[in-house]
Each structure stands twice: as C-alpha cells, then as structure tokens.
Amino acid sequence: MAHRYDINSALLRDLKVPLDGRTSSSHSATPKQHSQGPSVSGTAVIGVAFKDGIVLAADTVGSYGTLCKIRTVPRLLKVNKNTVLAMSGDYADFQFIEQHIGKQSIRDFNSDDGYEWSPKSLHSWLTRVLYNARSKIDPLWNSYVVGGYETETNRPYLGGLTMLGISYTSPYVATGFGRFIAQPFLADQVEKNPELDEKTARVAAIHALRLLYYRNRESSNKYQLAVVTKDNAVVEPVKEFETAWDTALMIRGYD
C-alpha cells in the first residue's frame, strides 16, 4: 500500500496507450531505431489571441527536406467547437497524435455526458505525451500551438508546446522559424493594441505568414486560418495571400 501511486510511471493508461502502440519492434532482429529527425514536415505555425477568441494560421506545405513534396496538406485540426490544434514538424507524428485525439473525442461522444476536449486539457495532455516520448529518447518531432475558447474561464486560450514538452501560454505564439520572424511582429501588434479585434488579428496572422514566406523557401503563400470564438471554431478553406516581389529587384549581392 505504501507505493500504491507509482509516480515515476505515473505516465498513465491514457498516455501509455499512444506511446506503446507506436512502435512494434520488440520482435525485430535489429535493434529498435528511434526517429532521428522529421521526414515530411510542416514549417512554422502561428497563433494570435484577440479580445474574444483566437486565430491560428499555417501554410499548407509538406516538405521532404528541401523538396516541396505535398503542396496542399492541412496542418490545422479542428478538435471540437472550442478547440483547434496547429502543428509544425513531422507530419506522420502529427497524424499519430491526430488519431488519438480523434479516438478520445469518440469516447467522449459515446459517454454522452457533455465532457470533451478543451484547449487547456488538450494542451496539458499533449504536453504529457510529448514529454513522455522525449523521456524515452523516442521523441515525437512536433511543435504545436493549441488554441481555443476555454468555457470554464470564459476566456480565449492560446498555448505553445515544443517537442521536448516545454509548454507555455502567451497572447501570441509561433513555432520554429516563426519565433524569429513572426513573433516580434505579432508581439508588436498585440501589445500596441490590447483590445485586438478579430479582423485585425486575422490581418496580423496573414501578414505574419507573409513575412515568413518571404524568408523561408519551405513555406508557401497557400494557407489556412482557424478562428475560434465562444462555441464556434472554424477552420477555413485553403486560400492564397497576395505577395509583392517588386522590391526584390532592389536587393543586391545574393543573385
């Protein structure tokens, strides 16, 4: 009884299931190989909180190294009417996570008790999953932005998460390369205007993607937006944003 709660394996049934199901190399003759890096991957995603909701944005490229392997692939996942997830990094690992989120959503639906993912609970669960994977030195090669509307607190929720399990909340979030390019721009927008409205947030999000597109060969101007307000999450269809390359002519020394 003294050890009825084993804290070091408090990695829970819920969490063990995904991680154990992922590799089945115990019967293999060769030693188990963990992933050493991403294969098909998505680049930066961003998130901005506004007065009564959040915007997430991502382009739609699935890169294979420097090859643009898939031109249109969704990197925003609508979990439910309050919760949206944006991924960057390995697309297969994301699909694995997506499956488990979906399974849990079905279990929630079948329970018929009105209990389902909230942005905060998804953020927390994903943090545990990524942290446990990294602790096995078998990481899921993803960074995430979790966004939505938290019905408990009646406030928008926006959080970031790295592949090591570092999770945090912030009114503006960007992953990967976006931390260098998009985040300072978004910080400027949010901090100048604490009462940011949806329209301004959308424009800011798209412009942040544009800034990334100009500087990152792995990105494209085909993108998706997700907007979550109270009891309403919409992942919008793929669009293209305008770009202007006329100033490129003025750049010297790189041709």
Binding site: G160, T162, I166, Y168, T169, S170, P171, V173, R179, F180, Q183, A187
Partner: peptide
C-alpha cells in the same frame, strides 16, 4: 537565442 514566452 529566441523567446518562447514573455508571460511565464
């Protein structure tokens, strides 16, 4: 060299 969050 980057900042993840200024609010943590």
């Amino acid at each position: 060299s980057t900042i993840l969050s200024r609010f943590t």
